[in-house]
Design a binder for these strands. Structure first.
Lengths: 192, 192, 192, 192
DNA sequence: CATGAATGAGTGTTCATTCAT
DNA sequence: TATGAATGAACACTCATTCAT
């Protein structure tokens, strides 16, 4: 049955997220995942070739979810600063909307060998639109003439960094904090 | 009686660092550590009460190493901007000097349950001098009137973030990158 | 799916009995048990939550086996002396029928911390019928006006004691010995 | 130094007894014993060839202690019944005087492979005077014409059995109970 | 004599994965 | 498709014993 399949996959994905956030990922066993999802371990292996495969798919799904929010009201033709801030606001929005999932993504990002290499690309690969924006800002001399990774550090990663701290404190980013983060990110990146 | 072999402790510490960097810490087993250090598993338990104890001690040792560099030529009475940058430069220096150890510290920092709670203090607790500097900057209105954690995100964590990316690429921060990071951090934090 | 293999449980139970009788219970390791039973250690943990759980279940099974024989042809309304002797004969019968199992039960009885507290009841708890018989004998002044435990020592435990000696000599109680034990037990307990 | 040696041996012996009574004998490790005795493990191996050797010596020492009390005021030429009861009273006395040591002896008696075979002789070998008394009683037809082991079961072992139950309840035999045990033992054994 | 250091073999238990139904 | 049963390899940790000082 089709629907049943989907519900099991969904349950498994959620179980991965729950277990990582509840027990930490070094206690993430397939047995625990299957139990929490309410399916048998053997069933898990019908849907995924192995544990790595499963985690990879969870990772991608979370990534897609966050990416989906990223380009809300984003207009590549719009004024640069506005689009820059738009992007960061969307990102902050996304990780505030799905704090547990964002936490899981952070775990995956800092533990590359949890998932297969091909599924994974470190350094916050946010895809073509972001790359375009970077190039645009560079050419128009609106941002500093630095390597892209350094911008990642002062934008997405800086937001992530505070979000992680807050998550560990049982909180999420406040509206004020998001504003502050964006202001600081822009101050850091913009060309004077 | 047989004398305490300091070289074995050193070998064990280095083994922890090597294994984490080579296999990731979810594959960090006492057997692997002992083997790489060239001692028996039982010997490990002479020096440490358990795995957590050992990791905690490695963590503290690394932290001390980095902290030792942090306050080089640091003068709490000196001009604020200079001391701010001095601190960050020292930090960048430290993690460039010990890239593998810095990588291990990142792992520990994002996996608090690896070590005992008492040994561990989350959110980049850089101690009193840093706290003093922050308070000073705040009072003199030299930096933005934000919470301390947000500054951590745009200073130490931002540097860490790029260092991590570079480390994964098999590189370390270049001199130029350190300069750029410091400039951006200052631009982000300073009060206009 | 693969069906539950009752023979494996049986093999495990028998292995526990064999290992205890062969190597003593301080050499009773799960590895040894599994090996002797011809199953993997991991399989053992499918059927039992841990070692203690397993031993507890073996204990209960043996106890049930012996208890089943205990009340053969036992009539609470029958003449006291006859029922007293009936009980002891049945008991002797039981431990002669299952000498290895009786030996194991003795080990469990003198090492209460081998099994969980709830599964275990010390001091030869032979249940209600025995308690009834004791009370009856006491009230009718057919036995000495002593505490119940002292009777246990001169009845079941005395039989057990000789059975243990014989078992260590590779023998079981002879028919004559059982008769003698019962006569002496009665002589010891009866009110003159 | 001579005195120091003895005090260490004494400490080790007492440690064995304490550990067995406190933690059970299946948790009886040389490390625990040495620690409790306040000596190093290696030191232990100066005095004993191995663990078994040590336990054997503890066993023998305890046995000697109890045996020493056994023949108090015992006169092989005295009236049989009186000597019979004298012996049992002395035995009860002994295990009431040293309840922890008696408990340890019971452990050794029911776990023969804890000590070397030669040091150990099962079935409560109480030595020549007891054997003489038995033979005497048998010849004079003062006791039943049964095998010696069966008498052990209804005398020493019966006393032991109740003492064990009481010890597990945190008590020792009362004076009344000793009287009752002796009466019952005599009633069981005597020839009518 | 005394002991901290050292270890190979073992402890109970869990792992990710596969099998048979 | 779904799953309980099964397992070899690994897990963290302890053992009795020996070594070197």
């Amino acid at each position: 049955m089709r629907t049943k399949d989907e519900s099991k996959i969904e349950a498994l994905h959620q179980a991965v997220i729950d277990v990582i956030n509840h027990d930490g990922y070094q206690n993430l066993s397939v047995a625990k995942i299957a139990k929490k999802a309410g399916v048998s371990v053997a069933t898990l292996y019908i849907y995924y070739s192995d544990k790595k495969d499963m985690l990879g798919k969870v990772y991608l799904k979370i990534k897609d979810l966050i990416d989906a929010k990223l380009f809300n009201e984003f207009d590549p033709q719009g004024p640069f600063e506005q689009q820059f801030k738009r992007l960061l606001r969307n990102y902050a929005d996304a990780i505030c909307t799905y704090p547990e999932k964002a936490a899981v993504m952070r775990v995956f990002n800092s533990n590359p060998n949890l998932v297969a290499e091909d599924v994974y690309s470190q350094s916050m690969d946010l895809g073509k639109p972001v790359a375009d924006l970077y190039r645009h800002g560079l050419e128009e001399k609106l941002i500093r003439q630095y390597e892209p990774e350094i911008f990642i550090s002062f934008t997405f990663n800086a937001i992530d960094s505070l979000a992680q701290i807050r998550f560990m404190q049982g909180k999420t980013l406040t509206k004020d904090e998001v504003d502050q983060l964006i202001e600081m990110a822009w101050a850091a990146c913009k060309q004077n």
